[in-house]
Design a protein around this nucleic acid. Structure first.
Lengths: 104, 104
DNA sequence: TAAGAGTATAAGCATTTACTTATATATAGG
DNA sequence: CCTATATATAAGTAAATGCTTATACTCTTA
């Protein structure tokens, strides 16, 4: 298990347009699965499975709030990932469309 | 074709241990296909095909020198890729084992 | 406790991917 | 020209991947 292999695995998590879009959205704020599914215009299981991959890979973390699971970025200690995420276009407008009625 | 999609495609080129190792080696110096195949301990066609992908993606460039095709990094205008490549471990020792008898 | 909303998991499928083997093309040197 | 070396391409295959549909689990609330 060399360092390059680990880096390739980490990059693989980002090298998918769905997951990269998720990361761009989470850059704005924490989001629950159903919001992410809506914003991605995809199914709930699809969003959930991508989120699980990102979480298993350590790129995001989850917080339970009642029936909702909120996901947020967890890249403070990952400068490589930070560099990529920083260069992603802003999703503020798109994420702003979601009404945050759960008082998180 | 959004910007995130293009970034995902570029990351996909780097998200493979073989190609990432190639990039790490080319960080040291330009190399020909047969040297790369030896260093990777893989077949010549496998190396050649990965190099083609990297070249098609614009991450490396090639220079013909007689019967040899030398590949080198082409990431001056790609800060995202630069950040990744910069964080790759040095392959100086490994690349140094190849004797450079072609006076390139 | 029953129903509904949010989420997770499982199974199936089509596509992509990385590799192998075999073969073709290109260049150098006798 | 002929051969050897370097490289590219083609075809085949096994494994991985992303998505769908169906179902199970979790939590809230009536």
């Amino acid at each position: 298990m060399h360092r390059i292999d680990a880096m390739a695995e980490q990059l693989k998590l980002l090298a998918d347009k769905t997951r990269l879009t998720i990361m761009a959205m989470l850059k704005e704020r924490a989001l629950c699965v159903c919001d992410i599914a809506i914003l991605l215009d995809t199914s709930q299981p699809n969003a959930s499975q991508h989120l699980r991959k990102l979480k298993t890979g350590g790129l995001i973390s989850e917080t339970r709030k009642g029936q909702w699971t909120y996901y947020s970025l967890n890249i403070e200690d990952k400068p490589n990932v930070q560099a990529v995420i920083a260069s992603l276009p802003s999703m503020a407008r798109k994420v702003g469309q979601i009404k945050n009625d759960c008082m998180f």
